[in-house]
Design a protein around this nucleic acid. Structure first.
Lengths: 164, 164
DNA sequence: TTTTACGTACAGTTTAAACTGTACGAACGT
DNA sequence: ACGTTCGTACAGTTTAAACTGTACGTAAAA
């Protein structure tokens, strides 16, 4: 459990807060940041030591982050342990993960709500709820529009800033 | 604990999922949706009954939602109990709450990181961490750019769709 | 003024999430 | 081949969040 310098610890705390906005757990955010700040890929044992968490916890954390394509495994010959490092194109990766969630969700919701709308229409008596469902549909259409626009904004941005 | 119809229950479940993307707790999302679907303002007791949660729970839930300006209290003469209803302009409200969080956060983070950068520069020996902090700053600048753009997109959208 | 009904503070309970330690199979080193 | 070291599955524990019931202050009703 080697103590980080105060300064490094501040950096970790600050950046983790941002990652939490992407709906990444505080614990996973911290792990990611530590990995990102490290100049070489890290082993599970190293991360366990640095985070002060058990190896099992770190292991599942790494799996979470890998699932989001935010962390990748690397090989280095002569090293037996698994080595992990953060993927590059931070901004692109995070936004991609993020926008994907929003867009796939809104798309699914639009479908669900339409099918509910159909069920309402098939009822003998139209329900008061119908108007509300319509509003929900509009809501999701607006969301979709907004985030689609954001997506293309991000593509423009990363085009001008290819390295982050 | 009057049972909702299956159909209404589906609507509640679906829409709640969307609200959770705005980082609203499942429980609060459900409460909001129920309130939104209701055709009249509701009392704490009614919401308690409909949600199946205790009055205390509903009370704190309503407070949370009020803090986010998603729910408002209304008066109706002759009715002694507090009445609550959802605010209109759903899309605008949610996006506002949401974008505010992102933008105020990124702005604060940029400040924090700059001040950390200064602390690094004042050190006798420049640290390896400096480069990483620079990357983080760029990251936040991109975030700010993206969400600022999204904000103006939303303003355009709500301008063409003033009623949602 | 007394009584009743409402909202909410608070302490305690339940439930879910995060985390740990042991144990075991697979891959490497000898 | 055997012994070691690694990653991870799993059961149990700790910790934090959600939730409940009682109790009390306040304001309306009688």
């Amino acid at each position: 459990m080697q103590p980080e310098s105060y300064l490094t610890d501040d950096v970790i705390n600050e950046f983790s807060k941002t990652l939490e906005l992407f709906d990444i757990s505080p614990s996973d955010s911290r792990l990611f940041t530590i990995l990102f700040l490290n100049h070489q890929p890290m082993t599970l044992d190293e991360m366990s030591q640095t985070t002060g968490k058990s190896k099992t916890t770190v292991n599942t954390g790494i799996r979470n982050l890998s699932d989001l394509n935010l962390v990748k495994q690397v090989w280095k010959k002569g090293v037996r342990k698994d080595l992990y490092t953060t993927t590059d194109d931070l901004f692109q990766r995070f936004m991609h993960y993020y926008l994907d969630r929003w867009l796939s969700h809104t798309s699914m919701q639009k479908q669900s709500l339409s099918s509910i709308e159909d069920r309402i229409n098939n009822r003998p008596q139209g329900e008061l709820i119908e108007e509300k469902v319509k509003q929900m549909l509009v809501f999701h259409e607006l969301l979709e529009k907004a985030f689609t626009q954001l997506k293309s904004t991000c593509q423009e941005i990363t085009h001008t800033n290819p390295k982050d």
